[in-house]
Nucleic acid binder design. Sequence first.
DNA 1: CGTCCTACTTACCAAAAGGTAGGTACCTGA
DNA 2: TCAGGTACCTACCTTTTGGTAAGTAGGACG
Lengths: 111, 111
Amino acid sequence: MKKRTYNCGLDAAVDVVGGKWKALILWALHREPLRFGELRRSISGISEKMLIQQLREMEVYGLVHREVHRQVPPKVEYSLTEFGRSLNEALIPLGDWGHRHMATIEAIPRD
Amino acid sequence: MKKRTYNCGLDAAVDVVGGKWKALILWALHREPLRFGELRRSISGISEKMLIQQLREMEVYGLVHREVHRQVPPKVEYSLTEFGRSLNEALIPLGDWGHRHMATIEAIPRD
DNA sequence: CGTCCTACTTACCAAAAGGTAGGTACCTGA
DNA sequence: TCAGGTACCTACCTTTTGGTAAGTAGGACG
């Protein structure tokens, strides 16, 4: 997040959901609240550092809610806020598109 | 574009439309084909280098079509392909979301 | 006492993305 | 002859993003 004003809604949305992981995290929390370790395991390839970093940002953005259950071992659950859920819904068509064109996308030459 | 396989469609879509500019360029070409200079002027803040770089990638991805009219001064028109149009449509809900929540997004504290 | 569990935190590094400033080629018109 | 317009290209640098590896706290369990 660098800017303060946007020319169009897409501009603003990309700023919020930008980066490699936020959309995936949002998606992972779609069904049910998950704890840190569950999230890490459900998003293949993400490092602990990235997961926390993104979760913290998304908490500030008001997309996810963080709930600490004081126990040993620690248990922290992450869930979507209403705001997060609304963004998730806006991402569904994009996810569908990616799903429909997966083969085409994978066939794109890299570098 | 770094990966070859994806876990979900959203993953793939984010890989294609990722970065700061591609979604904006797609959006700018929504109405009509534009030439290089028109594009540059219609996307505020973009540098020539970024615009070309992104256009080239999007051409490889099959999202935009580049047509050179041999004249002096040169005229090059960029337009959306069917593939590009389909992606653009998938981005509409996201753009709407950003538009609806613009005030909230702008109010998010930075850094 | 030592090891395991969870959910982090920190330091350090590499790669990717983005920005700036200049230059090129071609023809036009003054 | 020389500035002007279009659509680039190139080198260099900074910022952002992502990754690795290690360490921490506070019990539980053997």
